[in-house]
């Protein structure tokens, strides 16, 4: 059973990919990890397959609620390539140069 089935009551998943709960995020903030990056390093939230697409703004909300920080001060995590997961066999291709506009 996943950590987040409704029956379990108040256990709320924030990062779905890594199954990090709201309580784990709050605990990290209480320990002093008050940026999205620091929380990622502390809890793994945002390190999964979707790379924080969903949880980033949820974590931002929680930080804003628990600290004095304004939302504009709670910066998103650094975006890293690739923007989509790529299989290593494809990644290893020499990478054709796209044939763009032969007349150009």
């Amino acid at each position: 059973m996943s950590k987040d089935q409704g029956k379990n009551g108040d256990r709320k998943i924030i990062c779905r990919c890594e199954e990090i709960t709201e309580e784990e995020i709050r605990e990290a903030i209480r320990e002093g990890y008050t940026t999205i990056k620091a929380i990622k390093r502390r809890t793994r939230a945002g390190m999964g397959l979707c790379q924080g697409r969903t949880c980033s703004s949820l974590i931002q909300e929680i930080i804003a609620e628990m600290t004095e920080k304004k939302k504009e001060e709670i910066l998103p995590d650094t975006v890293r390539p690739p923007l989509y997961p790529v299989e290593l066999s494809i990644l290893g291709q020499e990478g054709e140069e796209r044939d763009v506009f032969s007349e150009y």
Binding site: L49, R80, P81, P85, V86, E87, L88, L91
Partner: peptide
Amino acid sequence: LLKEVSMVRQW
């Protein structure tokens, strides 16, 4: 075996 595995992040 890793051919089918996807890279998700580089840094």
